[in-house]
Amino acid sequence: MNLRYLFYNAIFNKVPYHIRFISCWSCGQDFKLDSNLFCSNCNSLQKPEENKNYFNIMGLQESYDIDDTELAKKYKELQKYLHPDKFANKNKTEQEISEKYSSLVNEAYKTLQEPLARGIYMLKLRGKDIPENTEIDEEFLMEIMEKNEEVENAETQDEIMKLNEENKSVLKVLQNQISKAFFDGDLVQLVKLLSRMKYYTSIDNQIQAVIRNKGIIR
């Protein structure tokens, strides 16, 4: 039965989550956890596996190029089962598991959703982070300073929307370069690209704040 199940999974990949064999914390029964969430015997919600990264938690393959729609789908699907509201009538332990699991899924979703946060997280999985004293060339800082000033001085809707468009395309290019660097496993290049992305993301935040404050409707 189990073999057939595994075989079926391998071929058709219908069940998004890996299979685990564990003992339920609530009823003690050994069972096969095929949805990765509930005990097949007593239906109690199970704790998330320890030492699993955000990709595993969301049931996604680890890659910088993730499908946004797929990620959102998985997120909604998981929260449909995990949300604490679903456990209002359950016992305390299960409520606590639901709270922890649900917030873990929120955290995973938030991190994987943003290109910058995702990149920094994946870099961390590879044992590296962006050091405080990363060398940046003066020319680049000058450019960032000027861009920030342009955003600060933008008055008309056209001006700010143009800056927004420009900045978005810079971010897009960086995202592609980061994707390639992850593919090549070039950590040095990744630190450089991600710290650049940090600056442009911070400009993006400024631009979005201006757009909101000006009440521009897109």
């Binding site: 962006i130 050091p131 990363t134 940046i136 800082l141 000058m142 710290s195 940090k198 600056y199 911070s202």
Partner: peptide
């Protein structure tokens, strides 16, 4: 002109 790559700040 200096910057903090970890938080994207720039200071002149």
């Amino acid at each position: 002109l200096v910057g903090a790559p970890a938080c994207g700040d720039v200071m002149k």
